[in-house]
Design a binder for these strands. Structure first.
Length: 434
RNA sequence: UCCGGGCUGGGGUAGUGGUAUCCUUCAGCCUUGUGGGGGCUGAGACGUGGGUUCGAUUCCCGCGCCCGGACCCA
C-alpha cells in the first residue's frame, strides 16, 4: 500500500461524476459566449514566475531542475502561460482573443478547507479589449456559470472594486504611500481588527488620521461615488469611477448586475491587476470565504514582451465551488447512474450483445455481464450501479422468442418479443410494454 | 514553515500493556432465473519508524497522511 501525496486528491467515480457536471456547466457557459478552449503545458520555465512575482515565489512552487539542466516549475496558475501564448502569436490572432481552459495547477502550500496542493480551475480570459463590455462579459460568464449550477443570488455575490480607485485615492493623500502594501492591508480589512488594520496602513505610509479617513472613503456607497472623485480631485480617480460605472452598466444589460455589489475593500492580493477586480463570495456561509476572483490586468502582456494588450479574466476553482454548491444544496448526489443493464443467463451472448449494442447506439449507458456471474449476482450488481432498466436475456425467455424488461425502481417486469426490442424506440422502458 | 485535533478491516465503530468487538461493505452459497428481505460461509484493520517493556494496537518521541486554523494567496 502506498499513501498519496499530501494535498493531492483522488476522485472516485461518484465524486468525479459530480465534478464533471460542474466543469461541463462552467465550460459550456464559456463556450456559448464564444470562448475557445486552449491546451497548455504543465511545466513552464521557473523564471517566468520569478520575473513576475519575485524570488520568494519559488518557495511556493513545485520547481526543479530537469535532466537537461533547465529550471522548470509545475504551473501554479494559467495567466503567465496564456500571456506567453498571446505574445507568441500576437500578430496572427484576431482580437478580441477569448480563451478558456480547465486544468490542474500546483502550489506548495499547506492544505486547508477548499485549498489543496493540486487544484482545478477553469480560466476564462479576454485579450485585446479595454471596453467595459469585456469586463462585464467576464462577469456574465461567471454569473451564468453559477446560476447554471443551480445557485442563485441568495447563495453568492460578486464584490466588485477597482484598482485605480484604491490607488488613486492613496495617491491623493499628502503622504509617501507604499501602494502595494496599502492594498494588501485593504485586502485583509475584514479579517483583522480595526486597530491592526490602521497599523498596517500606517506602516504603508499613511498617518493614523489619514488611515481613518481612507477607511471612511472605502465605505462610500454606490450612489455617492462622485464624493471620491471630489475628494481626490484627480483625473485618475475620475476615470476609474467612470470605468467602474460603465462596467456595472454593461453588466446590467448582460444580466449579471444583480449579482454584483460595490465593495471597495475587495482588493485581491495579486499585483498585476490594473482595473476592475472582483471576488465571488459565499453569501450564505458564516465565514465569508472568497470562492474565486478575477479582474483586469492591462499591463501583463506588455510586461511579457508583447504589444500593449488589455486583458480581463476570471478563474473559478472547483474546490471552493463544490463547497459553495454543497452549502447551497445544489451539489448532485455522488452516485452512479446507468440506463440499462443487460442481464445474461446461459448461452445467450449473441442476442444480449446485439441488444446492448443497439441501446448504446442510441447513446445510452449500457452494461452487461463481463464476469460470468449468476443471475442473482448480476441483479445485485445492476442494483449497485443504479440501473434504471434491466433487460433479461435468458434461455427461458429466448425459448419464447422473448426478453424480459424489468423496471428496477418498482420491480415490475414484462416479457417483450425479442425482435421488438428495442425496435424503433429511442429509450424503451417497462412502461412502453406494460 | 508554524499551531490545534485526529489516524483500528473498503466505509463506520468498540476495546485493551498479553494482536481486537459490532454494524456495514465485498465475494460465494442457500436458489444456473429475480436486487433493494432472510440465513449460512468466507475475505478484510490497529498509518509508519524508533524508544520503554518479558511483551506495545494501547505509554513516549519522530515522521507520514487527514481535518481545521495561521502565514501566504497567483
Amino acid at each position: 500500500m502506498y499513501e498519496g501525496i499530501k494535498g493531492f486528491r483522488d476522485f472516485y467515480p461518484g465524486e468525479m461524476q459530480a465534478r464533471r457536471w460542474a466543469m461541463d456547466t462552467v465550460e459550456g457557459t464559456a463556450r456559448r459566449y464564444g470562448f475557445r478552449e486552449v491546451g497548455t503545458p504543465a511545466l513552464e520555465p521557473t523564471e517566468m514566475y520569478v520575473d513576475k512575482s519575485g524570488e520568494e515565489i519559488v518557495d511556493e512552487l513545485y520547481a526543479f531542475t530537469d535532466r537537461g539542466g533547465r529550471e522548470v516549475a509545475l504551473t501554479p496558475e494559467l495567466t503567465p502561460t496564456v500571456a506567453r501564448m498571446v505574445v507568441a502569436r500576437q500578430q496572427a490572432l484576431s482580437k478580441p482573443i477569448k480563451w478558456y481552459s480547465t486544468r490542474p495547477f500546483w502550489r506548495y502550500e499547506e492544505p486547508q478547507q477548499g485549498r489543496f496542493r493540486e487544484f482545478y480551475q477553469t480560466n476564462v480570459d479576454i485579450f485585446g479589449s479595454a471596453d467595459p463590455a469585456a469586463d462585464a462579459e467576464v462577469l456574465a460568464v461567471a454569473a451564468e456559470s453559477l446560476t447554471g449550477l443551480g445557485l442563485t443570488g441568495e447563495d453568492f455575490e460578486f464584490r466588485v472594486s477597482h484598482r485605480d480607485i484604491l490607488g488613486g485615492l492613496l495617491a491623493a493623500f499628502d503622504a509617501e504611500v507604499d501602494t502595494a502594501a496599502a492594498i494588501r492591508a485593504v485586502d485583509k480589512r475584514e479579517k483583522i481588527g480595526a486597530a491592526e488594520y490602521h497599523d498596517l496602513l500606517a506602516e504603508a505610509g499613511l498617518t493614523y488620521d489619514q488611515a481613518a479617513e481612507f477607511d471612511d472613503l472605502l465605505d462610500t456607497p454606490e450612489d455617492d461615488l462622485d464624493e471620491l472623485v471630489a475628494f481626490a480631485g484627480t483625473e485618475r480617480v475620475e476615470a476609474a469611477v467612470s470605468n467602474l460605472a460603465s462596467v456595472l452598466d454593461a453588466a446590467a444589460d448582460f444580466g449579471a448586475r444583480e449579482y454584483c455589489t460595490l465593495s471597495l475593500d475587495t482588493a485581491r492580493g495579486l499585483d498585476y491587476y490594473t482595473g476592475v477586480v472582483f471576488e465571488c463570495f459565499d453569501s450564505t456561509g458564516e465565514v465569508s470565504r472568497s470562492v474565486f476572483g478575477g479582474g483586469r490586468y492591462d499591463d501583463l502582456i506588455e510586461g511579457f514582451g508583447g504589444q500593449p494588450t488589455p486583458a480581463v479574466g476570471v478563474a473559478p476553482g472547483y474546490a471552493t465551488l463544490s463547497l459553495l454548491c454543497q452549502r447551497a444544496g445544489v451539489w448532485p448526489e455522488e452516485t452512479l447512474s446507468t440506463d440499462y443493464y443487460v442481464l445474461r443467463v446461459g448461452d445467450t451472448r449473441p442476442v444480449a450483445a446485439r441488444i446492448a449494442r443497439q441501446l448504446r447506439d442510441r447513446g445510452h449507458v449500457v452494461e452487461t455481464d463481463v464476469a460470468g456471474r449468476s443471475f442473482g449476482a448480476q441483479l445485485d450488481y445492476a442494483d449497485s450501479i443504479n440501473a434504471e432498466t434491466v433487460v433479461i436475456v435468458g434461455e427461458r425467455d429466448l425459448e419464447d422468442d422473448a426478453v424480459t424488461v424489468k423496471d428496477m425502481g418498482s420491480g415490475d417486469q414484462v416479457q417483450v418479443p425479442v425482435d421488438d426490442f428495442p425496435g424503433d424506440r429511442e429509450r424503451p422502458t417497462y412502461g412502453d410494454f406494460a
